[in-house]
């Protein structure tokens, strides 16, 4: 545990949604899986999330929104990362997200979307298998 890289994850709540039960449960589960989790708190703009992701040099940005604003907010985060030339950060999203919206989100650069009922183990496995560095 002493040496070497640890997976670093930024857990972020974009937009105005205040429901952070899911985000906090995931944050704890990732910690318990040995990852370093940076939680930014509520009401983050995509710009703030991307800036924090860069300063913290994270491997993963995990977005959570339950307000239905994911269609605007998630792609914006992916787009800003791309604009800053960052292609080694995995972006995933979770929340009350209808399956109809998945294709659009994935096309925008959200690697995977997790909906209510997903186990934290699934998210952990997904991250371990898909981080880009």
């Amino acid at each position: 545990m002493d040496e070497g890289r640890k997976i670093r994850v930024l857990v972020a709540k974009p937009g105005l949604d205040g429901h952070d039960r899911g985000a906090k449960v995931i944050a704890r589960a990732l910690r318990d899986a040995g990852m370093e989790v940076i939680y930014t708190g509520l009401r983050q703009t995509p710009e703030q999330i991307v800036a924090a992701a860069i300063q913290e040099d994270v491997d993963v940005v995990a977005l959570s929104s339950l307000s239905g604003a994911h269609g605007y907010l998630f792609p914006k985060v992916a787009k800003l990362l791309k604009e800053r030339g960052i292609d080694d950060v995995l972006v995933i999203g979770g929340g009350v997200i209808p399956e109809d919206d998945f294709p659009e989100l994935k096309a925008a650069g959200i690697a995977e979307v997790f909906t209510p009922g997903t186990s934290t183990a699934e998210v952990i496995d997904y991250i371990r298998e898909h981080i880009k560095r």
Partner: peptide, 11 residues
Amino acid sequence: HELAEGEVGKV
């Protein structure tokens, strides 16, 4: 407002 983007009328 800037922070309202994407949230108007949603919940």
